[in-house]
């Protein structure tokens, strides 16, 4: 088995790590206790995936806690603030649909990330199921929940193009995932009586650059919170 590409492991590992942190922010704040627990469990799955991926190419703690913002390779989609519950669910729908396709293909290959992907793909199937269920419930719910769900889908749309940009050393043609992704989210969004956004996902106005270390303003603040304990108290244990 060949050694893993650092760029590929960081891209996937950072996506999982950063989204895990954003989901963890819901602990104690979700609309109902069951969702507090559900989002924390999804965050824990992602954290486990991040640890496996980052450990392939370095020390997981150093990579998570001691890198500067520009060294992170996650997409801008996962670093956005959690927003309201519908906003979080919109991101979960976009991201888990993408991750399910990506890990499914990686798992079918023979590359160094295949064993991690095979394990993660099974977990992500539950994340996607959770996102689908909530998209349907909010979209086809009250006028308030419908509007909020639509706003979440619209607001995050311009961050979705970046998911399909090529990643160095990844044995998956990410651009080829787009069609399956579009079909997957369209099916759920339409059943939820919502509208698939149509704005640009690439080009001048759309977002991107996370894979090259270019991040949005909110990411610096998130990293400060995520890293401060480790940086302020090196080697702390409890």
């Amino acid at each position: 088995m060949s050694s893993p590409s650092t760029a590929a492991a960081l891209a996937l590992g950072d996506d999982a790590l950063v989204l895990s942190h954003r989901l963890g922010e819901w602990a104690g704040h979700a609309p109902v206790l069951e969702e507090d627990v559900a989002l924390a469990n999804i965050a824990l799955d992602l954290l486990g995936q991040a640890r496996l991926l980052l450990s392939l190419v370095g020390d997981e703690d150093e990579l998570a806690y001691l890198r500067e913002e520009r060294a992170f390779r996650n997409t801008q989609l996962v670093e956005q603030e959690r927003g309201d519950f519908a906003h979080t669910i919109a991101r979960q729908l976009y991201f888990s649909t993408y991750q399910a396709l990506l890990y499914g293909q990686l798992a079918d290959g023979m590359g160094p990330l295949a064993p991690i992907a095979a394990k993660a793909a099974k977990e992500v199937a539950y994340h996607r199921d959770h996102a689908e269920h909530w998209t349907l419930r909010l979209g086809d719910g009250t006028p308030e929940s419908h509007d909020r769900m639509q706003r979440g889908l619209d607001a995050l749309w311009r961050y979705t193009g970046e998911l399909f940009e090529p990643v160095d050393g990844l044995e998956v043609d990410t651009a080829a995932l787009r069609e399956g992704w579009q079909a997957g989210i369209t099916d759920v969004i339409e059943r939820a009586t919502l509208t698939v956004p149509t704005g640009p996902r690439r080009g001048g106005w759309s977002a991107g650059g996370g894979r090259r270390g270019i991040h949005t303003e909110v990411f610096g603040r998130m990293l400060a919170e995520m890293q401060h304990l480790h940086r302020s108290h090196p080697g702390a244990t409890w």
Binding site: E34, V37, N41, I42, E123, Y126, D129, H130
Partner: peptide, 13 residues
């Protein structure tokens, strides 16, 4: 089904 995720990731409520 009450919740897809329970006290641990491996269980549903």
């Amino acid at each position: 089904l009450l919740s897809r995720f329970s006290s641990t990731a491996c269980k549903a409520l």
